[in-house]
Design a protein around this nucleic acid. Sequence first.
RNA 1: CGGGGCUUAGCGCAGUCUGGUAGCGCAUCUGCUUUGGGAGCAGAGGGUCGCAAGUUCAAAUCUUGCAGCCCCGACCA
Length: 440
Amino acid sequence: MRLSRFFLPILRDNPKEAEIVSHRLMLRAGMIRQESAGIYAWLPMGLRVLDKINRIIREEQNRSGAVELLMPTIQSADLWRESGRYDAYGKEMLRIADRHEREMLFGPTNEEMITEIFRASVKSYKDLPLNLYHIQWKFRDEVRPRFGVMRGREFLMKDAYSFDLDQAGARHAYNRMFVAYLRTFNRLGLTAIPMRADTGPIGGDLSHEFIILADTGESEVFADRQVLDQPIPAVDTDFENVAELDAIVKAWTTPYAATSEMHDAALYETIPNERRVSARGIEVGHIFYFGTKYSEPMKATVTGPDGRETPVHMGSYGIGSSRLVAALIEAFHDENGIVWPQSVAPFDVSLLNLKIGDAGTDETCATLYKALTARGLDVLYDDRDERPGAKFATADLIGSPWQVMVGPKSLAEGKVELKRRKTGERQLLSVEDAVLALTA
RNA sequence: CGGGGCUUAGCGCAGUCUGGUAGCGCAUCUGCUUUGGGAGCAGAGGGUCGCAAGUUCAAAUCUUGCAGCCCCGACCA
């Protein structure tokens, strides 16, 4: 992509409303634009990151056996009356009347709808287990949206719903998602800690929040450092293997880890001092098992092997993709801007032509651009007629993992300069070696 | 939902107290010079001063009402 042809409205100054670093940087790097309180337009740079995150989420959901579909954002109030949540949900639900005065709503979550879809088609235990997910915009009319897309009213969420014949099956479904989440966050470059979460009236121990540590996080968290040493489940993990998954989940949930709501100070005190971690965190995922809470009132039943109709056991599993964009920036930035992990970077390489109009730099950049894109890299070529300083500042701000700087100075020696955004480390290389270094 | 604050050009702000017809920096456009960490000079364009009503010869400025937005707290992917 040529920067001169891209849409990248960069702000030089910090907008005054942005208090936390991810919000400031997202606005400054031209990733989002606020349209209303808690409602944002995703500009090209932001959308690229969102798409990369979603791609990883999809791959891991699919790997774990979940199946993607897409449900609408607008739902009928009648569906929510069946579960009893239409009145219970309160003002956080955005309620809409259509032209026929039918009561509609902008979905804050999809348990009711997925249960309706399930019960319409699935009648036998033989079709279980089933896990359906989608990545769709949600709307929750928060009292106080804040921190940009970290707590927006409209947000993009991956939500999966599992259906099983019994509680044992549901636990395995839960474990599959648990493992998929560990892999997903790891691939995003994040260290996410699963923490015991409140299960509400259902009870039991089957609810975990996945929290990444960050000073600006909204939750206060306590953990045993040992949880950080757990290995991430491998790519060839067998999601059908009940015992294997159970062992992984057990290993991850044995060391102490809890948010302030679930914190057990006495238990925490028994951890050796040097292993205690007390920090702030951002919730990026939440999974829970809720049994027959929806399947019973909504009559989502299957016929079991014994010939009896029984309500299915369900769980739901959410990842806030739009929030993750902000969470990633909170985790990866420095004083000059964003420092994207390779896996979600909007562009792999920023190519800077330090002197547009110079035959040598123009030609070398054209060669590099062609070679790198041909090898599958996303390259943002800064071909604007700007001074070098402005290009350096832009490249640092938008945070591509690599920068290739082509100027008359290094070109006189037949070299270009390769800079690693994360460390600032630079090396002078020939064009060929630079291509090799970037595609190795 | 309680408390506080803000709204003037794309962004950041001054002007409001004390009414007289809108200004600064950055950004944008043109020209020349410049070119390895956000250049210099010269010129130019861009504003229903959040909206509405009122007071007045005259309102960004005073009065009233409304709206939007932000921050702090209680609640949430």
